[in-house]
């Protein structure tokens, strides 16, 4: 007998060491995430994967599944909290989808659609975050950063370059690059790095290419993030 837990009443089998999120997705149940990536250890910062396991709120990406647990995920309460977290991400940065090249391919936006976020609800912070266009091939638009640290991890652990790091603290936390000048051009960053294509939002973008695919025909214009994620899990 394999072990199993209940996700919204449905039995989900799991192997020892598997997290709630991994087991759920494998079994065809969607739990959202922004900072999680199958090639990296769990990070647990975005909190979109929040579920209630045995009555306690936990990050599904970082919590090993336990035999017999009852886990709530796709409920009005949890989805409401997820919507709230999305609203927080939208107001703390400058997210103007109509003028963003990543629109339609952006996971933050796609989750906004998935959880029917109609308004960012809160006061917008309108932070000042200058773009870095110094690099010949790539553009950094910090306005859209959600601090998932995927670029940090990819550059450090896969590319072996540590081009990116977070500095500052709290609401003043921000992305920094590995150069005394603070300019991307002065790092060894390359458009072929994993870090160059791992950003789930529109911070790290290739230059010289724009609107190659028209708005309306992009990834999440034609498919929800839920179905795309589950399809990728199957393959």
């Amino acid at each position: 007998m394999t072990k199993q837990f209940l996700l919204d009443g449905q039995p989900v089998p799991f192997e020892d060491g598997q997290t709630i999120l991994e087991a759920a997705r494998k079994a065809g149940h969607y739990i959202p995430s922004l900072c999680w990536h199958q090639d990296f250890p769990p990070h647990g910062s975005c909190k979109l994967c929040i579920v209630k396991a045995a009555g306690r709120h936990v990050s599904a990406c970082a919590t090993p599944a336990k035999e017999g647990w009852e886990v709530e995920s796709n409920t009005p309460e949890m989805n409401g909290e997820r919507r709230g977290l999305l609203q927080m991400l939208f107001v703390e940065g400058n997210h103007f989808c109509p003028s963003c090249e990543k629109s339609g391919n952006c996971e933050l936006q796609a989750l906004g659609y998935e959880y029917e976020m109609l308004t960012p609800r809160f006061r917008h912070f309108f932070p000042e975050r200058p773009v870095d266009a110094s690099h010949p091939d790539m553009l950094l638009d910090f306005n859209r950063c959600i601090f998932c640290e995927l670029c940090v991890r990819a550059s450090r652990d896969v590319d072996g370059k540590s081009v990116f790091a977070l500095t500052g603290r709290g609401i003043h936390k921000h992305l920094a690059v590995n150069a005394e000048s603070g300019r991307l051009a002065d790092t060894d960053f390359s458009k072929d790095d994993l870090a160059a294509r791992i950003c789930p939002v529109g911070v790290i973008l290739p230059k010289g290419r724009g609107f190659a695919v028209p708005i309306g025909e992009r990834t999440f214009d034609t498919e929800t993030i839920r179905s795309k994620t589950l399809k990728e899990e199957e393959s």
Partner: peptide
């Protein structure tokens, strides 16, 4: 009712905010 991106989050005009 807030109709459209600019009413919802300031939109394009709000990009002067910085």
């Amino acid at each position: 009712i807030a109709l459209g991106a600019c009413a919802v989050n300031g939109g394009l005009p709000a990009q002067r905010n910085h």
